[in-house]
């Protein structure tokens, strides 16, 4: 049952992490300069409103009691209320989350499609010209500020060359009915191919902005990992069987490198949520990131902290899923679960 034990360990760690994050957010709320009730009620609130907010948040209670109440509110999914829209932060975030997920999925696919072939070729021809160039490209790709890349791509592809749309998620008037909140998926559900292609065109640049640093990191880890496996004792017998380099790389080095790579991809996808703050803003896309950026701009501190909590939860869940996938990929752990084979 090593498998279940490892998964439950990960679960416990995730819960602990979320508790740590909630504590951090609570401390930040307490550290906000000025009267908390005034901040929570918004700069324009009158004294009665402030008083009612103070009562609702239980600000007259001891700090420890407030902390426990805060944790209980988090458990109920109450991430606070936006001062600007007077709506619960969770409701607002839930509405824009699918759009961010769509972007992240698309970016991961593009990034994987770039990184894997590059790493496989580079590792097969270690030290050759392609390997050298790919490494330099990866270092450069990983060292570009996402928001700047977004601005430059948007300007040249959208404004100057007019290949892609500049910003938004779909052209005026051809949006499909909102079912999932993901424009591409909605278009497909409606069977509207032109709308799908339209949404895809809007998606491509922001997805590339995420895909480039993603691919750079995945490339570097995968290449190093492939080379590590290729240099291990395991490969001599494979070579002695008469295997070609491509077979050694694809059949042996790649599966063995997949475990660390999937873990890293999980971390990177989690990191994309942070990057979304910058990129969604530049491309004026609906999403968790642009919600956060807007809240910062409007000085809606409660919304910012609620969104920080929300993103933290999302990142922890992505990491958890990546960990579980990693565990499932490893027959040494999977085997004990299904009890296959002899002792």
């Amino acid at each position: 049952m090593a498998y279940l034990r490892l998964i439950s360990q990960r679960l416990v760690m995730t819960v602990l992490t979320l508790w740590g994050l909630a504590t951090l957010v609570f401390i930040m709320i307490k550290l906000i300069p000025g009267d908390e009730a005034q901040v929570a009620a918004g700069p324009g609130a009158n004294p009665e409103q402030v008083a009612s907010v103070a009562k609702r948040l239980g600000l007259d209670l001891p700090v420890l009691q407030q902390y426990l109440n805060f944790l209980l509110r988090m458990l109920r999914g109450d991430l606070g209320t936006s001062v600007v829209s007077s709506k619960p932060v969770l409701t607002e975030l839930a509405a824009v989350l699918p759009s961010t997920i769509e972007l992240m999925i698309f970016a991961s696919i593009i990034g994987t499609l770039i990184a894997f072939p590059m790493a496989l070729v580079a590792a097969s021809y270690r030290g050759k010209a392609f390997d050298g160039i790919a490494r330099i490209v990866a270092v450069t790709g990983g060292a570009m500020p996402a928001f700047w890349l977004a601005l430059m791509l948007q300007f040249f592809f959208g404004n100057v060359w007019r290949i892609t749309p500049i910003s938004g998620q779909h052209s005026f008037g051809i949006a499909s009915p909102n079912v999932t909140g993901m424009p591409t998926l909605d278009a497909l559900l409606a069977g509207d191919i032109p709308a799908f292609l339209d949404a895809l065109a809007y998606l491509i640049l922001p997805a590339f902005v995420f895909a480039i640093p993603f691919a750079a990191q995945v490339f570097r880890l995968l290449r190093a990992s492939l080379l590590g496996v290729l240099a291990s004792d395991m490969m001599l017998p494979v070579r002695a069987k008469g295997a070609s380099t491509s077979r050694m790389v694809l059949r042996h080095a790649l599966p063995n490198s997949l475990l660390p790579t999937v873990s890293l991809m999980g971390v990177l996808v989690g990191g994309m949520v942070g990057g979304a703050i910058l990129v969604e803003t530049v491309f004026a896309r609906r999403g968790v990131g642009s919600f956060l950026a807007n809240s910062v701009a409007l000085k809606d501190t409660y919304a910012v902290l609620g969104a920080v909590m929300f993103v933290g939860i999302a990142v922890c869940l992505v990491n958890l899923v990546a960990d579980i996938i990693t565990l499932m990929l490893d027959p040494r752990i999977r085997g004990t679960q299904f009890g296959a084979g002899a002792k």
Binding site: M13, T14, L16, T17, G20, L21, L24, V25, M28, I29, L31, I32, P33, G270, G271, V273, G274, G275, I277, L292, V296, T301, V304, L305, V308, V311, G312, V315, C316, N319
Partner: peptide
């Protein structure tokens, strides 16, 4: 080390954004 683990799994940019917002 548990605190470190928690810190490692939090999204740095987002938490920084939160802290910086609070600090002004």
């Amino acid at each position: 080390m548990r605190v470190t683990d928690i810190g490692l799994s939090l999204p740095g940019l987002v938490v920084s954004l939160g802290i910086a917002t609070v600090l002004g």
